[in-house]
């Protein structure tokens, strides 16, 4: 995983703040019976919370027998990268994500998209967590993320 340089106080504060409605990030939670729930994410910290749920693994029985008890959580990792870079303005983190992500899936096949997602979601989440930790250290007790 790429070691990120320490963010400036200004960047850290920005990354810990809440973006506006127009700048929100779309993520999805898929349920067996209620469908594809779209959720708006307004902060880096909430994005990381969401990513934590994205790489849960289940057995086929969990999904077919008890499938309705779980959700499949998904975010387009390249959209997330662009949100980090363009909306939150953290170009270094976005570049590190870009290195981690490599080329995106070249097909719309669910098998291809799924393999790509499963492979990359963990490392991307860890990068974001590293950055969040840095931000909190830089800002100290001065700022708290707003939901």
């Amino acid at each position: 995983m790429t070691d990120l340089s320490e963010p400036t106080k200004e960047l850290a504060a920005r990354l810990l703040s809440r973006v506006s409605y127009d700048q929100r990030l779309l993520v999805q939670k898929f349920f067996q019976l209620t469908g594809a729930l779209k959720i708006d994410i307004y902060s880096l910290e909430k994005a990381i919370e969401f990513l934590e749920t994205c790489d849960r693994r289940y057995s086929p029985d969990d999904l077919l027998v008890r499938g309705s008890k779980v959700s499949i959580d998904y975010v387009d990792l390249n959209c997330l990268k662009n949100w980090i870079g363009f909306t939150l303005g953290d170009t270094e983190l976005a570049e590190a994500m870009n290195t981690e992500l490599g080329e995106g899936p070249k097909s719309r096949s669910i098998a291809v998209i799924g393999k790509y997602f499963i492979t990359h979601v963990g490392p991307v989440r860890d990068l974001l967590k590293q950055r969040l930790k840095q931000c909190k250290e830089v800002v100290g007790g001065e700022a708290r993320t707003q939901p």
């Binding site: 898929f30 849960r56 693994r57 999904l63 499949i72 098998a111 799924g114 393999k115």
Partner: peptide, 22 residues
């Protein structure tokens, strides 16, 4: 009505959690 929906929507989604299609 979820009869077809389960086959066409949930079945492929399970790939994200299991790495395969039932």
């Amino acid at each position: 009505e979820h009869d077809l929906n389960d086959l066409l929507y949930w079945n492929p989604l399970t790939f994200f959690a299991t790495g395969d299609f039932p």
